[in-house]
Design a protein around this nucleic acid. Structure first.
Lengths: 113, 113
DNA sequence: AATAGTAGTATATATTCCATAGTAATTAAT
DNA sequence: ATTAATTACTATGGAATATATACTACTATT
């Protein structure tokens, strides 16, 4: 049943959601419009070439929309489209799964000397 | 809010869910127990070294459990743990998002000669 | 008796990712 | 007033990751 059939919607969706940084990017944009470097930081310091490539592809997939406010000095902003915003259900599912199933590594108590 | 904080559950979860092939592997195992090559095929022909590495990590994360039935000839099976099975909510969220938002590339009609 | 299938591992190559530097102009700090 | 930091990227070369392919020893099917 859940095999990879070429044009199954879920397969296509997974194929871009699984690309490195994408879920983090979507997740942080759920908080609102942000600039390039802001995303970069919020996402955990993605390298700029990679982020640039990911954002372009998300734009072409209709998940993210980009607005250039000025070229020099550069000032741009990225936001989720409606379709992109609805990925919040996916992020929420991950989040609640993680809250239940994530066993945090126990922080070792500092032994008093 | 949704920034990458080191030990936030969602961040940890995304960090392995985003690894290549992982979502496909989980998705296909939702259908039940499967062998190595079966997963490999169902997932879209993942290369064996990569699949092996991914399955090991999913096992160590407690998402997948492995049973060796015989070593020679090799016969092994993989299945989701309870925690792994509950990732179905994530897969379901992706699936329903995709059904709504995936615009299939229109197959061009064959022109009659 | 020959063929295909099992679960991987090993190796060499291809693809992807990363750190770093650099751009020109504005703003914040000193 | 001068300096430093910040903006959005691109370019480059090196590092990490993924890939195709061959291989194993044994069984089940043809």
């Amino acid at each position: 049943m859940n095999e990879v059939q070429p044009s199954c919607p879920a397969v296509e969706a997974i194929s871009f959601l699984q690309e490195k940084w994408v879920l983090y990017i979507v997740r942080t944009l759920l908080d609102g419009t942000k600039g390039f470097n802001e995303i970069r930081r919020n996402v955990g310091n993605c390298n700029p070439s990679t982020l640039s490539e990911r954002l372009e592809m998300l734009e072409s997939e209709g998940i993210v929309s980009k607005t250039v406010h000025s070229t020099m000095p550069p000032r741009t902003s990225y936001r989720l489209t409606c379709a992109g915003y609805e990925l919040q259900t996916v992020v929420a599912a991950i989040d609640s799964w993680a809250r239940v199933h994530w066993k945090p590594v126990p922080t070792p108590e500092l032994e008093p000397a």
